[in-house]
């Protein structure tokens, strides 16, 4: 079954499956223990190392191996975890499982431009005002009409000493917004990178650690970024390209990492994101097989009732017109051939002496004949006329 086309082959909106977009991705941690080595952490010894790769390697084991920050003796106690997702994803949730006590204060941010700029998705603190200048989240959710970064309670410490920081994109979004119809929501859930700022530890040390060190540190495992590879409704899966970049397997005449534009010849109408109800496939220009390129003209599109705006470029085979649907000057349609035939347009071949010009009727092929001349190409004298010696008046009345 093809998720992007129905049984009859008609396009329909399709989306990749929900995945952990962070799985296997490199995590950039601003602080990791083991350099220099301590008794409990040695970056050069795999048995005692706690690298950030443990955050996104296969997760869910009963005895997880944990990333650990360096010991933090004094303020600032900020540690940043950054996960480049490789391409745009549409987020559903983000979670981070802590091996030690979860932080008392943290912020979740996203980038939509591969780390050049960052915007907050949510804050987590028991002191929202002092920490982030925000009010704690109310039961009503966002106050405004659109999604916004709210301040949620800090994750609770669990009996095992750990805790879970969990965020759902719905948490910051007003109810009733529909992803298909809300560009604001589409923007809200789109991310190329995720960053978690751990800004204040809750307690001292790691309760699992036999050393029970006094200085602060963070320790976590299983960073999950639940989401769908963003393909704007035009692909059901993402693939690695030849350079190892993750890209959508675009359908519906679209292309680009996120299927965010129409393919060069598929510009008969503007690109649109697919919805559940409408595939909004990019349509190929109608050039009757005589052109390889076309461009979109908004004015023609409006005039056509928003049906067709493609204009064929460089019509070949002696054709012309917006759809290469008629013959260029000096050629006429051969009625015995289909419009898509390479030889659909025949040369007028008007006689250099008998014809008054080189351009024939584009439908019938009739050349304009001088007085007394006849024939499709004006190559004969009409009945009652005979050839003269004058090229200006090639046929004269028979005496």
């Amino acid at each position: 079954a093809d998720p992007c086309h129905d049984e009859g082959g008609a396009p329909r909106g399709c989306v990749p499956g929900l995945v952990n977009a962070a799985l296997g991705r490199e995590v950039l941690a601003s602080s990791t223990c083991g350099r220099p080595a301590t008794r409990s952490c040695d970056a050069s010894d795999p048995r005692r190392a706690h690298p950030a790769t443990l955050l996104t390697s296969a997760a869910g084991t009963a005895n997880p191996l944990c990333w650990r920050s360096d010991l933090l003796h004094r303020a600032p106690l900020n540690v940043t975890l950054t996960v480049p997702l490789g391409k745009a994803f549409e987020l559903v949730f983000v979670s981070l499982r802590f091996c030690s006590a979860p932080p008392a204060s943290a912020a979740l941010l996203k980038s939509q431009d591969h780390g050049r700029s960052w915007t907050p998705l949510g804050f987590f603190s028991s002191h929202c005002g002092p920490d982030y200048g925000r009010l704690p989240v109310s039961d009503d959710g966002p106050a405004g009409p659109g999604p916004e970064a709210l301040c949620f309670p800090a994750p609770q410490a669990q009996p095992d000493g750990g805790g879970l920081l969990a965020f759902s994109v719905q948490d910051g979004s007003p109810p009733g917004l529909d992803l298909d119809s809300s560009p604001v929501l589409q923007d809200w859930v789109t991310a190329t990178d995720i960053r978690i700022l751990l800004t204040r530890p809750a307690i001292l040390g790691d309760t699992r650690d036999s050393e029970a060190p006094v200085p602060y540190f963070y320790s976590a495992t299983e960073l999950q970024v639940g989401g769908r590879c963003k393909c704007n409704g035009h692909a059901s899966r993402c693939l690695l390209d030849t350079q190892g970049h993750l890209i959508c397997d675009c359908q519906h005449g679209t292309e680009g990492p996120d299927c965010g534009r129409c393919k060069p010849f598929y510009c008969d109408r503007p690109w649109q994101r697919a919805t559940v109800r409408e595939a909004h496939a990019c349509l190929a220009c109608s050039c009757n097989g005589h052109a390889r390129r076309c461009r979109f003209n908004m004015e023609l599109y409006r005039l056509s009732g928003r049906r067709s705006g493609g204009v064929c470029l460089n019509c070949r085979h002696n054709t012309a017109g917006r759809h290469c649907h008629y013959c260029r000057e000096g050629f006429y349609r051969d009625p015995g051939r289909a419009l898509s035939d390479r030889r659909a347009c025949r040369a007028c071949d008007c006689h250099p002496v008998g014809a008054a010009g080189k351009t024939c009727n584009q439908t019938t092929g009739q050349c304009p004949c001088k007085d007394g001349v006849t024939g499709l190409t004006c190559n004969r004298c009409a009945p009652g006329f005979q050839q003269s010696r004058s090229p200006v008046a090639p046929c004269v009345k028979t005496p």
Binding site: H351, P352, V353, G354, V373, T374, G375, N379, R380, C381, A382, P383, F385, Q387, R389, S390, P391, V392, P394, C395
Partner: peptide, 23 residues
């Protein structure tokens, strides 16, 4: 009646050299 095609060899281009088509 099917008339013969124009015979280019019969035309006298003396005064119309500039109109003479390239063959």
């Amino acid at each position: 009646e099917v008339m013969p095609t124009l015979d280019m060899a019969l035309f006298d281009w003396t005064d119309y050299e500039d109109l003479k088509p390239e063959v």
